[in-house]
Design a binder for these strands. Structure first.
Lengths: 225, 225
DNA sequence: CTTTGTCTGTAACATAGTCACACAGATCGA
DNA sequence: TCGATCTGTGTGACTATGTTACAGACAAAG
């Protein structure tokens, strides 16, 4: 239950769909529990039943699959205003969670208990639409991952990945080879070799734990190959 | 509109969820159009807007992604009683279809126009549940594809694939190497080599356009490696 | 029977993934 | 400040997979 009007206002800012139906918004504030999780916390484990649906208000959650060899691949990420559609679909169909979700920063989320998620899908159009939007976006995201790994060369994927990363003023990324490999679902050695190739053409500069992008245009070309 | 009581009975048999709500069943029969498509017909093209949702009553549809190099990978298949969740989510969120769907046999389906799909999601619990079940199953299917291609060796995937195929009396599969490659998202030469390997241990016997499984136990072991 | 099309096999090469190990730099504790 | 430990990275040797090119065998069509 969220009573504080200031917190309610912040929530409504983060989840604008709440303003489309005043009755629903009231119900929502009654049913929701604010939770706070630290970084690197396991949010959902594979095989787990889902006790509720979480809507992120702050922070980031990574949803990934873990292979038997210990390798991982990111399916998608959740940010502010989003919820985990796998959780939603597991709740709706009574199946266990098929991936792993972990916080990547401190996360604040609102938790809606499972029976109430069910109830609201029948009762509120605004909620149905919210859930369907999530579904659509995630299906597209997950199909994009398939396309990437089945058809794109790893050097192109790596170039795209580097271009997409937030960086500080001088374009240095602070990330390890292992972290990139984990993201793209490959071996750390493969990433190290490809980065070395990029360095040999002065496209990037490498240092331990950091990568400086010297030539974004060249990376762009690599990404498009 | 489906008026013939005999056809209505057949439809209700193929789509049992219709019997859960008589009002909905009546509405459904009014709104649905029976369509028949030949084999190898394009059902949905990538980028297309969706004019309606099809529910398959007979036959099979393959939904796949096509890479720039011309290679393909199967995302999932639709059979009797199923509908394409990508279509459903495209309809609900107004986005274009992100894959390609093609009939693999003669297909009979019921077509529900887009505005009515929208309307029923608000109006009928039975329909919402049907749509959510589809979503859940397909998300799981698509995540399984990612797991396969990111983490499993191709020889294991091929062995699994061969074991899953329907076969006639003497276990001969009638399929080309190219068709298998298309299914698994790889190159035809890779499949030919791996099948040759399997043949060299008498696990299978190869002939043009056919594969005989001699040793299912051995294939099972290969599938689990 | 000949021609054409399809299916398959193979060689040579490039890319990607695995395994093992060594080295360099960062961190921590004494 | 120094030594020990941990983390990140590079590299070699190998296997697996994907690409390109091409040849041969078999099936289908005229």
């Amino acid at each position: 239950m969220i009573k504080d009007p200031e917190i309610q206002a912040q929530i409504r800012q983060k989840l604008p769909f709440l303003d489309e139906d005043k009755t629903f918004c009231t119900e929502f504030m009654k049913a929701a529990t604010l939770i706070k999780l630290p970084s690197q916390q396991c949010f959902m484990e594979e095989g787990m039943a889902c006790s509720g649906l979480a809507l992120i208000t702050d922070g980031k959650v990574r949803v990934y699959k873990l292979g038997e060899s210990g390798r991982e691949i990111t399916l998608y990420r959740l940010g502010s205003g989003e919820s985990c559609v796998l959780t939603a679909s597991c709740i709706m169909s009574n199946i266990p969670f098929p991936a792993i979700a972990v916080t990547e920063s401190e996360v604040k989320a609102l938790l809606i208990p499972t029976p109430i998620v069910h109830q609201w899908v029948d009762q509120y159009k605004v909620w149905r639409q919210f859930i369907f939007e999530l579904v659509s976006q995630r299906l597209v995201d997950v199909i994009t991952v398939i396309e990437e790994i089945a058809f794109r060369r790893m050097d192109a994927r790596l170039a795209s990945y580097l271009l997409e990363q937030p960086s500080d003023g001088n374009s240095a990324l602070h990330i390890t080879h292992q972290a990139i490999a984990t993201e793209l679902g490959t071996a750390r050695e493969v990433i190290s070799r490809l980065l070395k190739d990029f360095e040999s053409t002065d496209t990037i500069t490498l240092a331990r734990g950091s990568i400086v992008l010297n030539n974004r245009d060249h990376l762009k070309m690599k990404a498009e190959s």
